[in-house]
């Protein structure tokens, strides 16, 4: 066995990719975390209390996975959907009628989007009730708020894309809301003009919402998520009760 292991792990290719040996000793195990771009996000060491499920209920992680799922399904959906007013509805229906697995992909995208809003609220409630927004984590709370708003904007912009009656009237309501921004005849009218790309919902609106939905908002969201995670590490891992009361392990 050992020879097989050596053959696999003790060569130049492995070393050039992973830069550490087989994680069979503590040093290598630490290296695994350090050297891997995906894993280094985790602390090398964590508080045992943080490992308890009830510490976070894994809500943040679930959100990260939902974002990943939405990105993947959204990526696939973009292959059949064209944001053009004469085609959008038919394309959406095509996914339902004529494309293999189109329905399940669209439904995954839709339900994951709903779930993302739900879990964002749960996540924030957890943070709030465990007091995890307190110093030194205030900034991360603010980022979290921005992420919440982006999540809602993502949901909203995605809502127009099927280009059906539901979509049309929902965005009508939203644009009317925007229009009431005081002072309504300057700010409100201007903001609504900017968002709709005109005075009524049309091709301009659809392409604006589409570009924001598939690029603008996810890009900002991803960027802020990186900052969000990085701050968790820099702020000392997951929040926990006053350190003076619980000995470090």
């Amino acid at each position: 066995m050992s020879r097989v292991a050596d053959l696999l792990f003790a060569n130049r290719v492995w070393k050039s990719v992973f830069r550490h040996g087989y994680p069979s000793n503590p040093r290598n195990r630490a290296e695994v975390m350090f050297q891997n771009v995906f894993l280094h996000i985790q602390s090398v060491k964590v508080f045992k209390r943080s490992l308890k499920v009830s510490a976070t209920f894994g809500l943040g992680l679930i959100l990260a996975y939902l974002f990943l799922l939405l990105t993947l399904t959204g990526f696939l959906l973009m292959f059949y959907y064209v944001p053009e007013v004469h085609r959008a509805y038919a394309d959406m229906k095509d996914l339902e009628f004529a494309v293999s697995f189109g329905v399940v992909l669209r439904n995954m995208h839709r339900w994951a989007a709903h779930a993302m809003v739900l879990f964002t609220f749960l996540h924030m409630a957890r943070v709030f009730f465990t007091g995890a927004y307190k110093a030194p984590r205030e900034f991360n709370w603010v980022i979290g708020i921005i992420l919440l708003i982006i999540t809602l904007f993502l949901s909203l912009s995605g809502y127009l894309l099927p280009w059906d009656q539901l979509a049309y009237w929902a965005i009508t309501i939203v644009s009317n809301l925007i229009r009431t921004t005081p002072p309504a005849d300057i700010m409100g009218a201007g903001a609504s003009y900017l968002v709709l790309g005109g005075t009524q919902i049309g091709q301009n609106t659809l392409i604006r919402f589409y570009v924001m939905h598939v690029f603008g908002l996810p890009a900002i969201c991803g960027l802020l998520m990186v900052v969000h995670f990085w701050r968790i590490r820099k702020d000392g891992g997951l929040a926990r009760p006053d350190e003076s009361n619980i000995p470090l392990r």
Binding site: S100, F101, V104
Partner: peptide, 11 residues
């Protein structure tokens, strides 16, 4: 498998 099949247009 599904993703691959998905990319294969039926119409």
């Amino acid at each position: 498998v599904g993703s691959f099949r998905y990319m294969w247009p039926n119409v």
